[in-house]
Structures are given as structure tokens and as C-alpha cells.
Design a protein around this nucleic acid. Structure first.
Lengths: 222, 222
DNA sequence: GAATGATGTTTAAATTTTGTTTAAAAATAG
DNA sequence: CTATTTTTAAACAAAATTTAAACATCATTC
């Protein structure tokens, strides 16, 4: 399911757009400011940002998101249709919709962007695993058996796949998957890593897919 | 994670700003005076200083921080909005916010400064090493092998990288990395230097990356 | 330029921290 | 209510960190 982060301070339009996108089968997180941005920044497939926001504006948020992950498509929304805005907004944005807009138009742009950004990534391989990104099916290439993960295990694994080759701190992982502040010394994440390894590793005691970076966190390499 | 040092003597506003910044995903150390400044001075990514403080005032602290590291961005806070203050404050400060302010405004300025000061530092080279700052990966350019450091080793190396070409005293290094007072004669740091050299130097007995400055400390040159 | 003391290096062992594993309790979904 | 997932807890294992001590090197003085 596609995760969309939508930042919009106007109650009415926010509610309306959120409901519409959910109705089209997307998962939508609607925030009224960029305050809790960090909690979501590494866990979204697309962002829709209003330019005019109190405090941290849409431009800053957009740049922040692109810095965290270059591959997150961004749609900018604006009540203004001035040409200079379009140009400045599009310097990092991937598409631009001016208010007022018809929900079909926004949905069409969102779908187009998702297609553009996801193309060529129908299926990926990590170690002895084959992952079909569209259907979220994981297959063991050796046994040809499908691996079924629980919710948390799946979210955790997805987080690794979205940040391939990066060393992820326990803090990043916990906050990215659980969306809560990580408490130093909490073993919850480690237990989930253990159970995930049990399912995806050939030998869970000698893991090759999820590498432990002692003192820091974990990593999954391509 | 971004390390912010915040010096503010007013309990209420201090608590409030600290919580807000932590909520935005930053690591914040809040001090009510500049007394313990030295413990943190070499280990922060940004400082927020109130101008009116008991004892050592914001200006002096700011100049002290800039002297220690020219690259630490500083935001000055002031209850006064007089123009002359702004000018004097900005002579070393990188931005200036007048009280009262909205937390979003402060956060936006902080983010903007961090972006400005951190730009263009995705990857750097030191000797035969290549360091990717985003993924925290260190590679030996000759063998193409990755070098995995332990937590302390990594922190220590990062400290050197943040202070390239500077001669660092053992005291600075120990207090910067361990955050504790350095005891004259303690060999702990040296042992860690040894193990770090074992991993990053081509010949640990004849180190070229981490240079020993006898009687003072160590240095890593670009 | 050899003796001396001070400072830095190296190695190994002791200690502490961090990560793994298992089991059981608690929460959640069907 | 039952089955499954998630969290908590505790025992265990492994690795990192600190401590300690022997060793080497440099600088100074005689």
C-alpha cells in the first residue's frame, strides 16, 4: 500500500483531500504542520505539500524530504498560480497543482508520479530472497517457498529495503517503524530482528541478510 | 542526529523550547549558564544562545564557540529587538530570533542553518580512506574493502573528521568523545587510538592518518 | 652519546556493555 | 474465545571497552 504524507493547514480542504485519497486505496497521513515530520520522513512513498504553512513552509519541508530520500516524489500545492512560484516550487518538487483543483486531477498526478518513480522496480533480489514490490511477496529462491511475515516484521523489512546499503541506527529503525521515540536500552527492536531473521535467513545464528553493526544498528546490503 | 546546545536561564521558556526541539527529532542539551560550556563545545552541530545570561553572557559564549569551531552555526535569542543589538549580535551569529517567538519560527531557522552549514558534505576523502557521511561507511580505496569500526572508534574518528587539520589535545578528544573530564595520565584514549589505527592505517606501526603530536595529542590531516 | 625520566605504544586480561535467544505475558485480531 | 502477534523479561553469549602492565621511543641532562 502506498504511503502518502500530506501536509495542509486548512482543516476543510485537508479532510476532503485525505478522505478522497484514502477512498482511492492509499494510506494517507495528514499533518497540519511540519512539526512531526521526522517521525514519517523515512517511511513515505510520496508527499503532498501545501506551500503556505505556518512556521516551517512547504519549500523547507520539501527540501528536507528530498535530502532524506531523493527518491520520494513530491507534489506541491498552492493557492497562488503565479509563474515565479511554479518555477521556485518545481526546483525540487516533482509536480505542482494549483488550488482550487479537482480531486481527480490530484489523484491522476499522484498515480503518474508513483508510476514514474517506481518503474523498473517491479521485483528486487536481496541475498537468496526475491521480493515482488508490487504484491509484497517474498520468495526464497532456493526452496521456491513463499515467506510470510507478520505486520511488524514486514514493516521492518520494508524499512531495510527502502534504505538498502545504509547503516541504520536502532533509533532510526525504531522511530521509522514504530513511529515512537526510541528508549535507550529497549530490546523490542532486537527481538523483532531475531524473529525476522528466523524467517528470512538461511541460518539465523549466522545472518547474512540483516547484518549487525554493533554499537550502532543494522544493515541490509543489496 | 543533530546535536544542539541551548543556553537559556529562564526555566519556563527553556523547558518549552527544549521539548519542542526534541520533538522535532533533535538531540538537545539545555544549560542555564555557560559554566559547563567546555564539556560540549567541540561536540555540537548548532548552538542557540540567549543574549541576557547571568555570568558569561551570550555574546562571549558565542565568540568562544566560534573560536573553537568556525563551522558551528549560532542562533541568538533576545528579548530586545533594537536594531543595534541585532547588528552587534549578528557580527558572529548566523541568525537572530527575537523573543517572544513561535517555536515553528525557531525550528525553521535552525533547519535552514543546518542545511546551509552541512551542504556538500556527502562524501569526503582522507588519505586512502573514503568516507560516506550519509551511510556512515568507510572504504579503503586501495582494497575497496569496507572498514567497520566499533562505536567508540567511530565516534573518535568522526571527532577527528569534524576537526580536520586541527591539533587536538588528549583532553579535547577525551572530553569530546566520552563527555567526561579527562584525567591526566589516563591511557584509555591512547588504547582506542591504537585499535582505530589497527583498522584504518595501512601500517599501524607507522601511522599516516592519525598523526601523534607528542606531548599534546593527535591530528588527522586532509 | 649513554643514562634517565617522561610520554606513547602494544598486548593481554578483566570488566562492562551490547546483542542474542528463549520463554512467557500481554495485547490484538479473527 | 482462541489464535496469533507483539512486548516484556531474563539468562546467556559475544564483543567492546577499560584497566593494567610491559615495552619502545623520544628528549633532556650530564
Amino acid at each position: 500500500m502506498v504511503h502518502i504524507l500530506y501536509i495542509e493547514d486548512e482543516e476543510e480542504i485537508g479532510q476532503w483531500v485525505t478522505e478522497d485519497l484514502i477512498g482511492r486505496g492509499h494510506n494517507v497521513t495528514w499533518l497540519t504542520s511540519g512539526n512531526q515530520l521526522e517521525q514519517h520522513i523515512n517511511n513515505i512513498d510520496l508527499a503532498i505539500l501545501d506551500i503556505m504553512l505556518p512556521g516551517l513552509d512547504g519549500f523547507s519541508i520539501g527540501k528536507r524530504i528530498k535530502k532524506a530520500n531523493q527518491d520520494t516524489p513530491i507534489v506541491m500545492l498552492s493557492a497562488r498560480s503565479a509563474v515565479e512560484d511554479k518555477l521556485e516550487g518545481l526546483s525540487f518538487a516533482d509536480d505542482y497543482v494549483t488550488k482550487p483543483f479537482h480531486p481527480d486531477e490530484l489523484a491522476a498526478r499522484v498515480d503518474a508520479l508513483l508510476r514514474r518513480f517506481q518503474k523498473g522496480e517491479e521485483s528486487m533480489e536481496v541475498g537468496h530472497l526475491q521480493i515482488d514490490t508490487k504484491s509484497s511477496i517474498i520468495i526464497n529462491k532456493h526452496t521456491r517457498e513463499e515467506i510470510l511475515l507478520t505486520g511488524k516484521q514486514y514493516q521492518l523489512f520494508q524499512y531495510f529495503l527502502r534504505h538498502l546499503n545504509q547503516i541504520l541506527t536502532k533509533e532510526q529503525l525504531y522511530e521509522g517503524v514504530w513511529g515512537e521515540r526510541f528508549m535507550e536500552g529497549d530490546k523490542t527492536l532486537m527481538v523483532h530482528i531475531r524473529y525476522l531473521r528466523e524467517k528470512i535467513e538461511e541460518n539465523p545464528a549466522k545472518p547474512t541478510i540483516i547484518e549487525t553493526i554493533r554499537g550502532i544498528g543494522y544493515r541490509v546490503k543489496k
